[in-house]
Amino acid sequence: MRAALAPPAPKPPATPFKPASYGRFYAETPAEEGDNVQTWLARGQNLIVAYSRVSAGALLSRQGQVDEYAVVLPDSGLSVEITAGGQVETAQGPCVAFIPPGDSQLRALGKGEVYRLITTRATDLAARCSNAADFATPDPNVPDLVSWPDPVDGWRIRVYAGDVPAQPGRFGRLYRCSTIMVNLTSGRPGPRDPADLSPHHHDDFEQYSIATAGEFIHHLRWPWTGNSAHWLDDQHEFCAAPSVAVIPPPATHTSQGTAPGLNRLLDAFCPPRRDFSAREGWVLNAADYPAPER
């Protein structure tokens, strides 16, 4: 279904391609450690993935955050209390929450895993990402980040359930805010059939494939242009959970779950995807966040 949305061939690039980048949190040193919390950071051109292991009482704060960000609790059993703009809300996993600009705080009410998706406008976090060196030079194939319109009734904490039943013809569970789109999936049990993969590409935006359970091989292939100096070797990169693969345009890519148990990816896009947003009923909170006129 996703591959059907892709155009038949990538646009001719004006610049060399950029290789994929990875954050393997399970194999890296935390960027931050505090009372009852450890946090790892990895980034793409537009988005930072902050992965935290928390116990009850842990605090995750942002001061003077310049734009909206997302909080994802992929598993049931963990709740967090979110405070922002004088509002207090409790989010219980699985869920997606969008947090308004300004000061905010998350307080863990139990033990589990929290994913925060924050744009690279948060320069304090971007500089401390484990793969920051990969983005010392921006990818010219990715347009500058432009936020989508503000929510229809103003800035506030918004929490959306992550266990909405599947529906024929709808792809995943898509939620968007003014900066980010999240696809919160249920995952697949057992290894993926190698005869049933879904290679596809994007012309001009990154995909953040965040492994929240299981193990994956990310298969990537870049097109050949007339300038062989721009060619890149195919990649078949192993990533266990927790991790993130930052897939640049216009690489053809597909991810293959390989673990015997649950294999689950959380896909994120920054800014939101126009093609997904144009499909009637696909974005579950579309009424709260208008799409750009063009």
Rank of each mutant, 00 (worst) to 15 (best):
100 P>E: 01
294 R>E: 14
226 G>K: 09
224 W>C: 15
132 A>C: 11
171 F>T: 12
76 S>K: 15
186 S>V: 12
44 G>L: 04
145 L>G: 06
252 T>C: 14
280 E>L: 13
166 A>Q: 14
113 E>M: 11
193 D>Q: 06
17 F>V: 09
252 T>V: 12
159 V>A: 06
124 D>H: 13
248 P>G: 04
279 R>D: 14
127 A>G: 12
85 G>R: 03
76 S>I: 15
228 S>D: 13
2 R>K: 15
172 G>N: 01
169 G>M: 09
205 F>R: 11
149 P>H: 01
44 G>I: 01
199 P>A: 02
207 Q>N: 08
199 P>H: 06
282 W>T: 09
280 E>M: 14
276 F>N: 07
26 Y>S: 14
79 S>I: 10
75 D>N: 10
213 A>T: 07
159 V>C: 08
182 V>R: 00
11 K>Q: 15
178 S>H: 07
50 A>Y: 03
85 G>H: 03
228 S>L: 12
50 A>V: 04
261 G>D: 05
229 A>D: 12
247 I>F: 03
234 D>G: 10
153 D>S: 12
25 F>N: 06
63 Q>P: 11
220 L>F: 05
79 S>V: 11
192 R>P: 09
217 I>S: 05
165 P>K: 05
31 A>R: 06
168 P>Q: 11
221 R>C: 05
95 C>Y: 00
111 K>W: 14
180 I>L: 08
222 W>N: 04
171 F>D: 13
246 V>G: 00
56 A>Y: 08
130 S>L: 13
106 L>Y: 05
143 P>D: 02
185 T>W: 08
13 P>R: 06
231 W>M: 13
53 R>N: 15
95 C>L: 04
184 L>E: 02
219 H>Y: 07
160 Y>M: 08
268 A>N: 02
272 P>I: 00
59 L>K: 15
143 P>T: 03
92 Q>H: 14
149 P>K: 01
289 Y>R: 02
47 L>G: 00
184 L>G: 01
235 Q>W: 04
115 Y>V: 10
243 S>P: 02
248 P>F: 03
231 W>H: 12
64 G>K: 08
157 I>F: 04
208 Y>F: 06
212 T>I: 09
188 R>A: 13
29 T>G: 13
140 P>D: 04
113 E>L: 11
291 A>T: 08
251 A>N: 03
197 L>G: 00
19 P>V: 05
246 V>K: 00
5 L>C: 09
51 Y>L: 12
265 L>T: 00
51 Y>K: 12
245 A>N: 03
47 L>Y: 00
15 T>L: 15
102 G>W: 02
294 R>W: 14
144 D>A: 13
219 H>K: 02
164 V>Q: 07
141 N>L: 13
11 K>R: 14
229 A>Q: 12
250 P>Y: 10
186 S>T: 15
259 A>L: 10
284 L>W: 07
162 G>N: 02
222 W>D: 00
178 S>W: 09
104 S>W: 02
270 C>A: 13
93 G>R: 00
254 T>F: 05
277 S>P: 09
197 L>W: 00
75 D>I: 10
138 P>A: 15
